[in-house]
Computed example of a mutant assay.
Amino acid sequence: MKKKLIVLAISSLAILASCTGKKTTPNAADNDSANVVDTTASNKDNVDLTSVAGTYEGTLPAADCPGIKTVLTINADSTYLLKQDYIDKKDGHDEASGIFKVLDGKVLMLVRPSTGEQTFYKVKDANSIIMTDSMGVEPEGETAKLYVLKKK
C-alpha cells in the first residue's frame, strides 16, 4: 500500500512540475479556422449587414420529403427569423429566431437559442445566399443550386 502511495505521489509531482512555469505559443491547429469577424469593421471583404438584410426564400432538399420550403429573414441588427415547411409532412412546420454571427467575412452562422444548433449560409451576392457547412464550403455539382435562397 505504501509503495502505491509513493508511486502516486511521485507521479503527481512529476505532472505538476511539467505543467508549471511553462508558457507555450498556441499551435495553429488548436485555433478554430472560422474566425468571428467584427460586423462593424469596414473591410471590403466583410458583408455589409444593411445590404444583406432582407427576406430570402427557396426550397431546400430533404431526405424524407420533396423539400423544405424555407423563408429566412436577416436583420441588420444581427438577428434572424427562420420559417421552414416540410413539404407533404403532417406537422412539418418549424420556426426559429435568434442571433447570427459573421464568420470569415461572408458566412452567416445562425444560432438557435433553444438548442445551440448552428446553421450556416454564405452570402453569394446582393440577392442570394447559399447553405454551407461550418467552414463555408458550398455544395458542389448538380445539386448545388438547390441550396440557394433568393432575396424577395
Rank of each mutant, 00 (worst) to 15 (best):
C19P: 00
Y80A: 07
A29I: 11
V111I: 13
I130L: 04
G54H: 11
V111K: 09
Y80H: 04
K23Y: 13
A28D: 11
K90F: 12
K89D: 09
T24F: 12
V37I: 13
K83S: 14
D104P: 02
S51T: 15
K22W: 10
C65V: 07
P113N: 09
S33N: 03
F100N: 01
Y56Q: 09
A96Q: 12
T39F: 14
A29G: 08
A41R: 08
V137W: 00
A53Q: 09
D45T: 09
G92P: 10
I74V: 14
T25A: 11
Y121Q: 01
V52C: 03
T24N: 11
K101W: 00
T119M: 10
A126Q: 09
T132I: 07
N27I: 13
L146I: 00
K83H: 13
E95I: 10
F100C: 03
L82Y: 12
G92I: 06
G21E: 04
T24H: 08
K101Y: 05
L49W: 06
G141F: 05
P61K: 09
T115E: 01
L60G: 06
S33V: 11
Y147N: 05
D88R: 07
D38T: 12
N75A: 13
V137Y: 02
D64Y: 08
S134T: 00
S33T: 10
N75S: 14
D133Q: 06
E138S: 07
M135S: 02
A96I: 03
E142T: 08
Y147P: 01
S97L: 00
N43V: 15
S114I: 04
Q84C: 07
T20L: 11
V137A: 04
D133R: 05
V102T: 11
V123E: 00
E140N: 05
L81I: 12
G136L: 02
L81N: 14
T70E: 10
N31H: 03
